[in-house]
């Protein structure tokens, strides 16, 4: 382990955060992207009557707690950089579940973000 204090607990919290964030975001996309939902207040009522919104909120609550614990163990400027891995996780998951395209430019973007997270994670 490098000296910067990235302990096994920090890594566990980081992994849990990615899992809750990805599941939560995909649930929100499923709720918000439903064409039958209509507009305005009716849209919110429709979304509240279906499970996706609530699954997303549940994931967010756990993510909330995991993230507080994570940030209390490392510097904030390092924490937000390591948290950027969520961008990669969400894009790859969106590719599989919503058939969103992974074009060359997106693959380059994903590679750069991953490299940035790896540099911070391994070097600190």
């Amino acid at each position: 382990m490098p000296t910067g204090g990235i302990s096994p607990l920090v890594i566990l919290l980081w992994v849990l955060n990615v899992m809750f964030d990805t599941t939560g975001q995909l649930a929100f996309k499923a709720a918000a992207g439903d064409d039958r939902a209509g507009d305005g207040v009716a849209r919110w009522k429709y979304m509240a009557s279906r499970p996706w919104l609530w699954l997303g909120i549940g994931c967010y609550i756990f993510e909330f707690l995991v993230w507080i614990a994570f940030l209390s163990l490392i510097p904030l400027s390092e924490g937000v950089l390591l948290g950027s891995i969520n961008i990669v996780a969400i894009m790859i998951a969106g590719r599989f579940l919503f058939a969103e395209k992974l074009t060359r430019l997106r693959v380059i973007g994903i590679a750069l973000v991953t490299l940035g997270v790896a540099v911070v994670g391994f070097a600190e």
């Binding site: 400027s77 390092e78 950089l81 950027s84 961008i87 894009m91 430019l105 997106r106 380059i108 973007g109 994903i110 590679a111 750069l112 973000v113 991953t114 490299l115 940035g116 997270v117 540099v119 911070v120 070097a123 600190e124």
Partner: peptide, 15 residues
């Protein structure tokens, strides 16, 4: 951190 941030921001701009 600055190198990591630059890579991440470049990635975000690509996206």
């Amino acid at each position: 951190r600055l190198i990591g941030a630059a890579l991440i921001i470049a990635g975000i701009v690509c996206l």
